[in-house]
Design a protein around this nucleic acid. Structure first.
Length: 268
DNA sequence: ATGGCCGGTGGAACCGGA
């Protein structure tokens, strides 16, 4: 089973690009972020006409996640547990059944900028950085629940985390940024330390592998990228991992998103 | 050439992104 994660930066603006990518790349499952659309205005027929089942969790203007699958999706859950006040559409789960069942978690992790810290270095309550770190703790708690259930699962999406210096062309430019600050990277490691496998680094070593290039300042032409879109696999899902890759060429296509798809191949 | 953007909203400029 081939599964992709792709931050498409607006489903309405990207409809044509998305359809041609689905036709050419032919994923079994696609986990999308930043649909920037309410569920009712998602171009559902475009996707269903290609043979996909579709589950969305959207909101007006911002955020929004979706799961597309050639196989039926079951037990859909919308929203990340742990904060009843959080209205941002950043998380969706569903189960897909291949040879065995696999729980899919699609996430659009908060950016977290601007970083606001108080005199003691703690994130300012109510600020965007505090929201990011709290969201990551909620994600860790959700992973613990899923681990206890022992169904294979993966958490895929735009993590807005640069895990290591080698994951940025210019790491020093990101030192104080919410994507690369120590608190953010530590929260990402707490996820990994539960026993999750970062699929790309399980398969590919070394620098120069990016999943995002800013639209500004000729970032793509200078290959000034960062790797922030990730697959985390539960132990049972990691057993099934055959390959992981980044579909870099998509960034050079017509009307591209600023992110590109990341893939896993699972023996499923 | 170290500059340079894009999508959504709403119907002009501004917000948010990373």
């Amino acid at each position: 089973m081939r599964i992709a994660t792709f931050n498409i930066n607006g489903v309405k603006a990207r409809a044509e690009t998305l359809v041609s990518w689905l036709q050419n790349a032919d994923p079994d499952v696609a986990i999308l972020q930043e649909i920037k659309s309410e569920d009712a205005s998602f171009p559902r027929a475009l996707i269903e006409d290609l043979g996909y089942h579709l589950e969305t969790h959207g909101q007006k203007s911002f955020n929004g996640v979706a799961i597309l699958s050639k196989y039926p999706l079951e037990d859909v859950m919308r929203g990340l547990p742990g904060d009843e006040e959080d209205v941002q559409a950043r998380y969706i789960e569903a189960t897909v059944v291949g040879k065995t069942a696999l729980r899919l978690c699609g996430l659009y992790l908060p950016n977290g900028n601007p970083v606001e810290l108080d005199a003691s270095g703690a994130p300012v309550a109510g600020g965007k950085y505090a929201y990011k770190l709290a969201w990551m703790e909620r994600l860790r708690a959700r992973a613990e629940v899923l681990l206890a259930e022992e169904m294979p699962f993966l958490m895929a999406g735009d993590y807005n985390i640069i895990p290591q210096a080698e994951d940025a062309k210019r790491p020093d430019a990101w030192r104080e940024d919410a994507l690369f600050r120590p608190e953010s990277r530590a929260a990402f490691r707490r996820l990994l330390n539960l026993g999750l496998t970062e699929a790309f680094r399980a398969r590919v070593q070394g620098p120069g592998h990016y999943s995002f290039w800013d639209y500004q300042a000729g970032a793509w032409n200078r290959d000034d990228g960062i790797r922030i879109d990730h697959f985390l696999l539960s132990p049972q899902a990691a057993d099934l991992l055959k390959d992981c890759s980044i579909e870099r060429a998509v960034r050079g296509g017509d009307k591209p998103s600023d992110h590109v798809p990341v893939w896993v191949d699972l023996d499923l």
